[in-house]
Design a protein around this nucleic acid. Structure first.
Lengths: 237, 237
DNA sequence: GTACGCGAGATTGTATACAATTCTACCCAC
DNA sequence: GTGGGTAGAATTGTATACAATCTCGCGTAC
């Protein structure tokens, strides 16, 4: 692991541009910048101690992915979703996951790898139900992994990728969600419900369980969203 | 409209980089390049008569959006979806549109703008049912517009954007689909069914009609896909 | 004949120079 | 005091120079 500068992390044998993309994206996802915060090339060059070429390439990518908004001849501003758009993201998630879980419950016998994956999820979430308290961040990560594992088991790559793009933007709100004391237990039960329905080929039940799971998260976030934004603003570096 | 070079079209007051993005994306979408076709910076510089800076920025964006695959230190290759992935894209479309149409049928009275939009769609597709034959390309465009209008009426921007990203990749296959003689009439009926179900608040009916509509397209494409690829290859410039 | 190594060419990665555009602030006319 | 115009600073857009890395073929050793 080589670091050219303390602020930028170079993973594997990547280049400066992709390092800047992942660093900036991570910061935006975790709300280190307020909405509409302006980013100029010169500022980022100084911050990362690189020339404008990789910075420009990174900014274009981030703008294309919706993390930045490009102002014509005036640089970029951070694009944060507001309350309404966050709710809308939860809905898109719901649309994709309801479909995935329905297909998964319908399609019948899995191959060995899928069966093992489902078993592993069952074990993980049964374990979480019985004690072993974790931090909100870790729980959010495990929750994301659970939902992405289902999409993966369905074997639909594009669906998984769209889901990942959405989950990236919702990561902070998932953490807020799991900061609620009673949220872990209900999530465990919902996840086990989902898995059981899939195993029992109960299509309607699987959909219903998934809907409960996602909607509860959405409601928690909706209630806590102003608090969330305030915390995020404090957490920024 | 200023053109710096015959092969590249500059829209509005954009820059070279975004012009290259849209030009290349359009060519890839219409299969002007075979899968795995290699693109080098130097080649594109010559082709568009620009320097490497805008080309590099464009390539990174296209790679980030999944239109190109980046080989480490070896440039880029065109990323075309194979038969299986195209089917998967149709499934993601189905997931999003089933959800949208269900919500639309459920949510009750629209505002005036939505009502008008629905009325316009009804008129368009009633018109197409009664004669007025069009080319496959125009029909594909109208079909895409129909489906995106529904997502727009729902008022969920992220959902619309994900749908658009998918539709971009499916454009050529929609055209193939509409080249089938009897496809126009069945599409018109299905679209009118969908609109009527929405107006009647018939959630289940709306879902069923949408499912018929998308699945029929998917089946047509599946049957014709080898033919499609052959044509696309011939259509390339 | 095969394997290894070296080197030239090709290609991408990064930095910098220059051009074009836009914003801003100041000055002057009225 | 207000309005307009202009100069210069700030910022992005484009081109090019140089560095680093990889590819591939050729020659030589064994």
């Amino acid at each position: 692991m080589i670091t050219r500068h303390s602020r930028i992390v170079r993973k594997e044998q990547s280049n400066l541009s992709s390092s800047i993309v992942s660093t900036l994206k991570d910061q935006i996802i975790h709300w280190h910048y307020p909405p509409e915060h302006r980013l100029t090339e010169a500022e980022l060059c100084k911050k990362f101690d690189v020339s404008r070429s990789p910075v420009r390439e990174a900014l274009r990518v981030l703008a294309s992915d919706g993390f930045l908004k490009k102002l014509p001849n005036r640089g970029y501003v951070v694009r944060q979703y507001n309350t309404g758009e966050i709710e809308e993201l939860y809905e898109v998630r719901l649309a994709l996951e309801l479909y995935a879980v329905e297909r998964l419950a319908t399609k019948g016998p899995y191959n060995k790898a899928d069966k093992e994956a489902i078993e592993r999820l069952k074990k993980t979430w049964t374990g979480l139900l019985n004690g072993s308290s974790k931090k909100a961040e870790e729980l959010a990560r495990l929750d994301t992994l659970f939902h992405e594992a289902l999409a993966h088991a369905l074997g639909n790559r594009p669906l998984l990728q769209h889901l990942r793009a959405i989950n990236e933007r919702l990561m902070l709100f998932r953490m807020i969600d799991f900061a609620k004391a009673d949220r872990v237990e209900s999530t465990c039960r919902q996840h086990l419900d989902i898995l059981n329905c899939i195993a029992a080929r109960d299509t309607r039940g699987a959909r219903a369980a998934m809907q409960r799971n996602i909607k509860e998260g959405q409601n928690n976030v909706h209630a806590a969203i102003k608090d969330a934004l305030a915390r995020a603003y404090l957490m920024r570096t």
